[in-house]
Write a protein that binds this DNA or RNA. Structure first.
Lengths: 204, 204
DNA sequence: ACATAATTCGGTCGACCGACCGAATGCGGA
DNA sequence: TCCGCATTCGGTCGGTCGACCGAATTATGT
């Protein structure tokens, strides 16, 4: 039994990794269960056995990926030795990592899929809300350290930053940077702005 | 001939409007040429006659929509009686309009489609670059009126604002606002921030 | 009026999809 | 040992898709 369960989990993760690979290459609309099964090297019917449906596979994939990312992000934000600007720079580093690893493509595809699928939307929304709360927590830190956030509440800051990153990812995937829109560079600059706010606040 | 061309153009726009409607309801992956033809009340083969392929229809649809939006936006930004904060507020108004009219959904679907289709990406990219140049122009105005943009270049400001709006739209479609992320409210607040920068600058 | 070209139309073809099925296999507990 | 359950497997079914075709219809120019 234990062995059987181990085998089951193994096949599941093999399928999830394959799904990630196919999603990265072909997008959500170009993803077929046959492609995933072929990439995983298992028969087609295994997908329906383990996940019930194509949608079930997508849902499981989002949980699988988001858990990994949130773990990493939580570790970073709980490191209290970091200043705000250092955290921001680190977030930008992570964005670069996630782009080259293919995470960004997969997550954006799942977000886009959720526009048409309420079930997927529910899961993706719940996952993203974890991010917003994380950012809002840092915003509270910023409020204390920098002395106020102007007209913004912490929830609004979180929505703004989250939106800027999501939009930046979308634009990167579109290839906007190759046409002269310095998307990631602009996000990095925000770190500079935070740095000067920190300097001003510390010499106050 | 003139009559035939008029008829041809009429059928084309009928198909484009139908495509917009279907795209809004079912998303890009759920859009079939049959649905579009049925919604337009014309035979299926008309799509291939007028646009060559499904992709041709998508490309034509983007041009059709983006031309309308850019016209509106150009009119707004060329009205030199508006202050920066007024322009921002207006842009937020337009966002609300475009959400309820369905434009946002269609444009986001086309952006997502472009991640998998280089041809579509080329057209969408070119269209969005028009927007970035528009925003960069306003950023130059802001640079003069407010006296500098901190660490940001005008191109970076454009990328940041464009990304924030694109990301905000994506999050809105996801339903993030219903789960407590005040996406559009946060964008409005930026207008408040601009207002206080204007006040500070004028009393200088 | 007539020839020519543009447009519209119904019908169909081959390919691909997700889902499902029943049989075969592997494994643990009695 | 053998039973029962979880898992794996190949195969197929009904359905949808984009693309294409040839005929019919309409408009244009002479």
């Amino acid at each position: 039994m234990a062995r059987a369960l181990a085998k089951k989990a193994e096949t599941s993760t093999t399928l999830l990794e394959a799904a990630k690979k196919v999603l990265r290459q072909s997008g959500h609309s170009g993803l077929s269960t046959r492609d995933v099964a072929a990439a995983a090297g298992v028969p087609l019917s295994q997908i329906h056995y383990h996940f019930g449906s194509k949608q079930g596979l997508m849902l499981a994939l989002f949980d699988y990926l988001n858990a990994q990312l949130l773990d990493r992000q939580n570790a970073m934000f709980h490191d209290s030795t970091l200043t705000l600007s250092q955290r921001w720079d680190r977030a930008c580093d992570y964005l670069d990592e996630d782009i080259s690893s293919g995470y960004v493509r997969v997550l954006q595809e799942l977000i886009a899929a959720s526009w048409s699928d309420p079930e997927v939307a529910k899961v993706v929304r719940a996952g993203l809300m974890g991010w917003f709360e994380l950012i809002a927590g840092v915003a509270r830190q910023a409020e204390r350290e920098l002395g106020g956030l102007g007209p913004f509440s912490t929830a609004e800051i979180a929505a703004l930053i989250g939106g800027a990153f999501i939009g930046g990812e979308s634009l990167y995937l579109l290839g906007a940077e190759k046409k002269g829109a310095p998307v990631r560079q602009a996000l990095r600059r925000v770190g500079d702005a935070i740095r000067s706010a920190e300097a001003k606040s510390s010499t106050r």
